[in-house]
């Protein structure tokens, strides 16, 4: 893993921590977003922050959260999803 990847992880966790109103240091990859108090509206705000920060488009429809083919249920899975979007943008 490169430094760039660590940047992504750090930035995504910072976004999630801000949304959950918690300290970034308290978040671990296994944390469920729901358990952090990030509900469906919080997720929409999180996705907006990710898109604006990384200049990517997240294919997410609140009516069919699974349809985008991305797992956005835990801190770790969101980090991986963003990594995928950023690397496919670079490719």
């Amino acid at each position: 893993m490169t430094d760039r990847t660590d940047d992504i992880e750090r930035t995504v966790i910072a976004i999630l921590a801000r949304q959950a109103v918690r300290d970034a240091a308290d978040l671990v990859p296994e944390d469920q977003l729901e358990a952090l108090g990030i509900d469906s509206m919080g997720l929409v705000e999180t996705i907006f922050a990710v898109e604006e920060t990384f200049d990517v488009s997240v294919p997410f429809n609140a009516n069919a959260p699974e349809a985008g083919g991305m797992d956005l249920t835990t801190v770790g899975s969101v980090v991986e999803a963003v990594r995928g979007l950023v690397s496919s943008k670079a490719a």
Binding site: V44, I47, F48, F60, N61, A62, N63, A64, A67
Partner: peptide, 20 residues
């Protein structure tokens, strides 16, 4: 669009595969 509830395909109320 910002709210992420709009359908890309059409309005299909009560359908199991509706998307907004």
């Amino acid at each position: 669009e910002g709210l992420r509830v709009m359908s890309p395909t059409g309005c299909r109320p009560f359908c199991a595969t509706r998307d907004g």
